[in-house]
């Protein structure tokens, strides 16, 4: 029940050291406050342990509860087509509290993305499928809320919202 059933592939959004010993997968929702809380923790972890850490983000938008989450996921994926997935990912989480449906156009312009291409990509079937496949892979792996982390294929149950709990788990995985 607690294993990551869909292995990480090159289709995933990933950062850090792709050959790192610790592979941390997060299922997240851009409008979920707990994911907003986890965001700077993961950032810090990447700064401190980036040599050993391979981080993957998969979309798990609960769109009835968080009406902007699904669109935000599409926007981040579409930004990825212009090489700026992580820039968009960071921007959305940093501005999560003030995000409205009008925010995305601002983010696109702040990140100097081609707005026409963004618009086309957001409606692109492959981008939509990426978000939906992420979600489905999550539920199959037992994700029941966000954020849910998997470390080297095992569900990380020890994350308690603190930086230390993430760090200790990753340290244990690399030693």
């Amino acid at each position: 029940m607690s294993k990551l059933r869909t292995p990480v592939t090159d289709k995933d959004d990933q950062t850090g050291n792709l050959k790192g010993k610790a592979v941390l997968v997060e299922y997240g929702d851009y409008q979920c406050p707990h994911c907003g809380h986890a965001f700077p923790l993961v950032k810090k972890l990447l700064q401190e342990m980036g040599e050993d850490l391979h981080f993957v983000f998969r979309n798990f938008p609960l769109s009835e509860v968080h009406p902007l989450a699904y669109d935000a996921a599409l926007v981040a994926e579409a930004a990825g087509r212009q090489g700026k997935f992580w820039e968009m990912h960071d921007m959305i989480f940093k501005r999560q509290i003030t995000m409205t449906e009008d925010s995305f156009a601002q983010y696109v312009s702040t990140l100097k993305l081609d707005p026409k291409r963004m618009q086309a990509d957001i409606a692109d079937q492959a981008i939509i499928a990426k978000v939906e496949d992420d979600f489905e892979s999550g539920v199959k792996s037992g994700v029941n809320g966000t954020p849910t982390f998997f470390l080297n294929g095992e569900r990380l149950n020890s994350y308690d919202g603190s930086y230390e709990s993430l760090k200790e788990a990753v340290e244990a995985a690399i030693t």
Binding site: P61, L62, S63, V65, F135, V139, N144
Partner: peptide
């Protein structure tokens, strides 16, 4: 609430 919210997102699946 969380459990039902999850199922609510999964109806298509």
């Amino acid at each position: 609430g969380d459990q039902m919210a999850l199922y609510n997102e999964m109806l298509k699946i």
